[in-house]
Measured scan of single mutants.
Amino acid sequence: KQVQVGDEKYTFDTPEEARKFAEKVAKEKNLKVTEKNGNFHVE
């Protein structure tokens, strides 16, 4: 599963790991997490 933050992409083995990372980054940057096709976008 992938997490996209701006132009950066991070790959994780499980959706749970990806979601945790996305939520942590979103909180730090005051952004929101959206899920698209099983991948997460922080925007």
Rank of each mutant, 00 (worst) to 15 (best):
F12K: 00
V33S: 02
F21V: 00
K27G: 09
N30P: 03
H41K: 09
A18I: 00
K36S: 10
E17D: 10
V25I: 14
E43C: 07
Q2H: 14
A18R: 00
E28C: 08
E43P: 05
H41E: 08
K20F: 10
Q2K: 07
V33F: 09
K29G: 11
Y10G: 02
G38M: 04
H41N: 08
Q4D: 06
A22W: 04
Q2M: 14
K27W: 10
F12T: 00
V5K: 02
T34V: 14
K24R: 11
E17F: 01
E43T: 13
K36C: 13
V3L: 01
Y10S: 01
Q4R: 08
V33M: 07
A26C: 04
P15D: 10
G38L: 03
P15A: 14
K1N: 15
K29A: 11
E16G: 06
L31Y: 10
V42E: 03
T14I: 04
E16P: 00
E23T: 07
H41R: 10
K1C: 13
K24L: 11
E35H: 08
R19P: 00
E35A: 05
A26D: 03
L31M: 15
K32S: 11
A22N: 00
V33K: 02
V42P: 04
V25P: 00
V3E: 01
V5S: 03
V42W: 02
E28S: 07
D7N: 13
E17M: 06
E43V: 14
R19C: 06
K1P: 15
E8A: 12
E8F: 13
E23H: 10
F12H: 00
F40Q: 02
V42Y: 02
T34S: 09
T11Y: 15
F21G: 00
E23Y: 14
D7E: 11
E43A: 11
K20M: 12
K20V: 11
K20A: 14
L31W: 15
K24V: 07
E35K: 08
K32M: 11
E8G: 05
A26M: 03
G6C: 07
V3N: 01
T11W: 15
K24E: 11
E17P: 00
E43N: 09
D13H: 08
Q2D: 09
E17G: 05
V42M: 06
T34C: 05
V33Y: 07
H41T: 13
K32T: 13
V3D: 01
H41D: 05
V42F: 07
F21M: 01
D7K: 12
E35T: 09
E23I: 09
T11M: 13
E8H: 13
V3Q: 01
E17V: 03
L31I: 05
A18K: 01
R19D: 02
A18G: 01
D13N: 12
P15V: 15
R19I: 07
G38S: 04
Q4H: 15
H41P: 02
G6F: 11
A18M: 00
E23A: 08
K27M: 12
K27F: 12
Q4E: 08
K29T: 10
G6S: 05
K9Q: 12
K9I: 15
H41Q: 09
F12L: 02
K9C: 13
E28I: 08
E8K: 14
L31A: 12
T14V: 04
Y10F: 13
F12N: 01
F40I: 08
E17A: 11
N37L: 07
E35W: 11
T11C: 12
Y10P: 01
V5Y: 09
T34G: 04
K20H: 11
Y10R: 03
N37Y: 07
R19L: 10
N30K: 08
K32N: 09
V5P: 01
T34L: 09
F21K: 01
V25H: 05
V42N: 02
V33G: 02
K29R: 13
N37F: 08
N30H: 09
E17I: 05
R19E: 05
G6M: 08
E23S: 05
F12R: 00
V33E: 04
E35S: 07
E8T: 13
Q2F: 15
N39Q: 12
E28G: 06
E16Y: 06
T14K: 05
G6E: 06
E35I: 15
L31Q: 09
K20T: 12
A22T: 01
K32P: 07
K1G: 14
V5L: 07
K1F: 15
E17H: 04
K24I: 08
A18S: 02
G6K: 04
V5T: 03
K32W: 09
N39H: 12
A26S: 05
E16N: 05
T14A: 05
E16W: 07
